[in-house]
Structure formats: structure tokens, C-alpha cells
């Protein structure tokens, strides 16, 4: 009995503990910090400006789709079609071979319009028609995937003409910082601002927290949910364009590389998969963790098998640690 009451009092202490709250909020950042410190000792190249810039550049597309997915998760939705949208726009932008600023703008707008269109279809079915998001986006994913295969016959899409504009976006730098990273950072800051400060994000969160209650509160939940899918697809489209600028030969199997990464990043970062809670900072922590894991594996020169094993292990540990800490301080 004594033991139990001790546990009870220590639990009471934890509840009043400020550090408890800090740990709960920043659990993943701690995991990330540990990873960075450990890696800095193991690899001499790791802790350098150049390497960090490489990591930031590599996680660009993932950061964008994870940000988009954050909107969807906040609104209580789910999306499996991101990888397909990303693949589609990356292939389109290469296929168009935009050489002059005018053609580039044209093809960019076309790509974005296509992604917004796909997002609207998703959003219409899920938001307005109240269809299950998992099955709907799975279906959309099949349709886009098949469309890509039909157009490309499953072959690699390559750039035929060299385009300076694409190369500039893909490889250009400003003060050693890649243009891509600047674009991604700008978009993420805008999204952070939207989610942190606007009434729109408040609407998303309450719709995600309960559709029924939001209906009784006079919110147009259908349109709000639809908008999250549009934003999500738009960001996936932009991510695709950035990938297109970076890689000039795109395989249709690229879809698998991004299949579950964004979902993992959001979940590991602490976005609730059942909707209503989370911030862009959460998402960023997840994205950075995945980025640094990938980078560390490459730097350590591990074989692909060990890379995958470690990646899986670290992700599992991160999510378990996060979960346990949250439970303890709940």
C-alpha cells in the first residue's frame, strides 16, 4: 500500500513539474539532439555547415509534403495520394523542358493547376461528400499512378534539352544557401504563420477535432476540410516541381520513396493522426529527424540493408519514446 501511495505522490509532483511539460513538448527534439551529438563524435564531416546545408536541401520536398499533410491531419483527414501528385508534377515539369522564363512560368502554373485540381477532387469527395479519406485517396492514387504509367509506358522520363531555369532552381545558391531551401523555408514559414495565427487554422482544428460538433457550431466543415486537401495537393505539387528541377531522370517507382515518409514525419513529430492538434514545429521536428537519419546513414557509409535497419529502429524508438513520455505526463 505504501508503494502505491508513493507512486501517487510522485505522479502529483510530475504534474506540477514544468520540466515535465517541456519534455513532453520537445521529446522529438531531444531525440534529434542526441542523434546529432552522437553523430558529431562518430563522423568528422557531420558537424559542418556544408553537411547541414545538404541535409536541409535533401529534406526540402519531404518538408513540403509533410507540411501539406499537417493541414490534412489537423482537419481530421488522411492522404495517400501525395506521392502520386509529387511524381506527376515532377514528370510534367521535366517533360515541358521550360527554357525561357515565359515557358517556365507557364509550365509551373500548369503543374500547380493540376495539383490544385487533384486536391479539389480529393477534397470534394472527402469534404463535401463525406467519403472515407483513406479509400478515396487510395483510389485517386491508383488513378494518377495509372495515368503516369499510361503516358510514360513505365519508362524513365528524362530532360532532353538543358534548361538553365530548372538548373538554377535545382542547384543555384544564394550566399551558399540553396535556392530550393530558401523556397521551401519561405513556404514553411508562411504555413507556420497560417497555422499559428489565423482564424482559418482555428477552423481547421475544430473541424478536425469533431465534425459533428463543428456542424452544431455553424462551421462549414465540408469546405474547410476540402481546403486542407487543396493546400496539401498544392504543396505536394510544388515539391514535385522542386524534385523535377533537381533530378533530370525520373523513374515511375519514385512514388515508393515518398510513400509513407510524410505520414511518418508528422506522426513522429507529434501531429495527432485523429485530428485537431499539432503545429508546424511538430512536423519540422519529424522531418528533420528523418533527414538527419538518412544523412547519418550515408555518412557512415553503411550498406543499404543496415541503413534501412537503423532508420527503422530509430523511428520506432523515437515514436515509442514520444508515446511513453506523453503517457507519463498525461
Amino acid at each position: 500500500m505504501k508503494k502505491i501511495s508513493q507512486a501517487a505522490t510522485s505522479r502529483l509532483k510530475k504534474e506540477n513539474d514544468l520540466t515535465g511539460k517541456l519534455i513532453r513538448t520537445y521529446a522529438i527534439w531531444f531525440v534529434l539532439l542526441v542523434l546529432i551529438i552522437v553523430m558529431s563524435f562518430i563522423s568528422p564531416v557531420f558537424f559542418s555547415f556544408r553537411n547541414f546545408i545538404t541535409v536541409l536541401k535533401n529534406i526540402g520536398p519531404l518538408a513540403l509534403i509533410a507540411t501539406g499533410l499537417t493541414f490534412v491531419f489537423l482537419g481530421g483527414g488522411f492522404d495517400l495520394s501525395q506521392g502520386a501528385v509529387l511524381l506527376l508534377t515532377s514528370m510534367l515539369i521535366i517533360n515541358f523542358n521550360p527554357v525561357t522564363p515565359l515557358t517556365f512560368t507557364g509550365s509551373l502554373l500548369f503543374c500547380l493547376a493540376i495539383s490544385i485540381g487533384i486536391g479539389s477532387v480529393n477534397g470534394y469527395f472527402i469534404g463535401m461528400q463525406r467519403m472515407n479519406p483513406f479509400i478515396t485517396t487510395l483510389g485517386i492514387r491508383y488513378i494518377i499512378g495509372a495515368f503516369i504509367y499510361i503516358v510514360t509506358s513505365g519508362a524513365v522520363v528524362s530532360a532532353t534539352v538543358q534548361s538553365d531555369i530548372l538548373e538554377f532552381i535545382g542547384f543555384g545558391t544564394v550566399y551558399r544557401i540553396p535556392i530550393q531551401t530558401i523556397i521551401v523555408a519561405t513556404i514553411i514559414i508562411i504555413c507556420w504563420f497560417i497555422i499559428r495565427f489565423t482564424t482559418y487554422s482555428r477552423r481547421i482544428k475544430i473541424v478536425g477535432s469533431s465534425i459533428v460538433v463543428s456542424r452544431f457550431s455553424g462551421l462549414q466543415f465540408g469546405k474547410i476540410q476540402m481546403s486542407t486537401y487543396v493546400i496539401n495537393a498544392l504543396l505536394a505539387g510544388i515539391a514535385g516541381v522542386l524534385i523535377g528541377c533537381n533530378i533530370f531522370h525520373i523513374k515511375p517507382t519514385l512514388i515508393w520513396n515518398y510513400d509513407f515518409d510524410a505520414i511518418t514525419a508528422c506522426a513522429v513529430g507529434g501531429i495527432s493522426l485523429s485530428g485537431g492538434s499539432g503545429t508546424i514545429i511538430n512536423t519540422l521536428s519529424g522531418v528533420l529527424l528523418i533527414g538527419f537519419i538518412n544523412n547519418s546513414m550515408v555518412l557512415l557509409g553503411l550498406e543499404e540493408s543496415w541503413q534501412l535497419i537503423f532508420k527503422g529502429l530509430i523511428l520506432l524508438i523515437a515514436i515509442i519514446v514520444d508515446m511513453q513520455i506523453k503517457r507519463r505526463y498525461e
Binding site: R202, K205, I206, S209, S210, V213, S214, F216, S217, L219, G276, S277
Partner: peptide
């Protein structure tokens, strides 16, 4: 009636 998973501010102003 209530967004049970949200805080008081959000509930009142929703």
C-alpha cells in the same frame, strides 16, 4: 456540443 479535445478558449469562441 463541445470539442472535448480542445481547450476552453477554443470551445468558447468556436
Amino acid at each position: 456540443g463541445l470539442f472535448l479535445g480542445q481547450d476552453l478558449k477554443v470551445n468558447i469562441t468556436s
